[in-house]
Design a protein around this nucleic acid. Structure first.
Lengths: 259, 259
DNA sequence: GCCTAGGTCCCGTTT
DNA sequence: AAACGGGGCCTAGGC
């Protein structure tokens, strides 16, 4: 049984197609820069930064017009095999199976799908000019602190954000009410020892660069791990509880609108 | 036009179904713990650790039997919105649209999809008992070094792997030909300053724990960034070029088989 | 549950 | 092209 829908160029939908028919329309979909998906009984091999082999079974496979490839089993957020955008997809039909190959040349990586049977094949051109907006990331915390420096502490003033130091950028650089230079490292989620070491790195770099012996280091985030806090205290750094949610409330108040 | 395939319980495939029909079979697929996918003209909102809003457009949506949810636009490896496994999916049909809601209670996070139109709906039970194996990760480097310590240097001996220290685990702990204690940090990819700081942390912790003043620290990876190497030298640590690929060759030689 | 560390991480941005 | 840091990162493994 092979039922077919929408063959007039807009989209393609094949129910349980024979390999040969699937091959024909798969090529059509790929050539037409459509979003292609299919459920296939297949084997998958990957070679590149690492190697992997997935033995035979049914999976959902998605190929996007930009060359990204996703192979999903029936569990989990992550694809079992994949390629990021900018791969070249090629196909080949032999007697008993269909090969789909995705090659990324920038970093030599190859995914090969050996297909023995297809349950369904769909090709669509997504009409999507929608806009995507996200709130509550580190960037929003930064904006809020620029507008409301007291979110860090009373008397705090921002000198600048994204200040360059040797190894990267300081999230927020300012002075406290006593006039002491202060480095603020922001995290939108839980801070762990990594974040503490990062702050330490920035404080030390800046001391060296400016030839100053005293610079305060403040880590601002909604939560910090126990070990992170321990390390922080050992290194004479400070912690300020601050959540993206609280920052957003301040931003909304300023703009007078709900996000 | 709504063509229908495989309604006998095995799978469901609807071509351009009216919302009402889609709703009925969507519920059927979800209740039957099938893999569900559809292409929909929709809006998406997310609230949890952060918030986001995606305005109207066509996307490919996948709901897995384990409760994971993926919403893909026609570009990129990553879904624009998603939920990891263990969410509760609910649906509601109103006059002019279909709502699909995914709630994760462990960390209060909600994704809502407002659907205005469906291009296709599929529900399948994936038959997949295949095995997945991967080679060339840090773990394989560790195994290879245990069997062939000279991969680090002549005369090197492994005392143990995964040795616990204050803040975590040392990848490989051993002694060199001079009897000096040595900490090895492995990276399967390019090492940057982070990796160097990680190694430093381990070396320092171990010095403290053992009351020893001299411990060698070796970072082994296929590549290291310029700044990483700079920092490494400043901190009196060492670099050993070592790739997963080379480790795999040694492992294959040992096992006498091709991976 | 918390916490650490790895990942074929991906991805944007800047040098 | 290299490199650094963020991410709703996700996921596995200890404790």
């Amino acid at each position: 049984m092979s039922k077919v829908g929408g063959m007039e160029g807009n989209h393609i939908l094949l129910d349980n197609p024979p390999l040969k028919e699937a091959y024909r329309f798969l090529r059509k979909g790929l050539a037409g820069k459509m979003l292609v998906f299919f459920i296939a009984d297949c084997e998958v091999s990957y070679r590149g930064r690492a190697r992997s082999y997935l033995s035979r079974g049914e999976r959902l496979i998605v190929i996007k017009p930009d060359g990204s490839l996703l192979i999903h089993r029936d569990k989990g957020y992550e694809p079992v095999n994949w390629q990021p955008p900018d791969t070249v997809i090629s196909t080949r039909l032999t007697d008993n199976h269909l090969l789909v190959k995705s090659v990324r040349k920038s970093v030599n990586e190859v995914v090969e799908i050996h297909i023995f049977d297809l349950k369904v094949l769909g090709c669509y051109r997504l009409k999507d000019i929608g806009t995507f907006t996200m709130y509550g990331r580190e960037e929003d915390m930064k904006k809020a602190i620029e507008m409301f420096p007291s979110l860090i502490e009373e008397g705090f003033k921002v000198l600048r954000t994204e200040r360059k130091v040797r190894p990267g950028f300081i999230d927020v650089f300012g002075v406290d009410s006593q006039g002491r230079l202060t480095v603020v490292e922001l995290k939108s989620g839980t801070s762990s020892m990594d974040a503490v070491l990062q702050l330490k790195k920035y404080v030390d770099s800046l001391k060296k660069e400016l030839g100053v012996t005293e610079i305060r280091g403040i880590l601002a985030s909604p939560r910090i791990t126990k070990r992170g806090l321990q390390l922080l205290k050992t290194l004479k750094l400070e912690y300020k509880p601050l959540s993206p949610a609280k920052c957003l409330k301040y931003l909304e108040r300023k703009k007078g609108l709900k996000l």
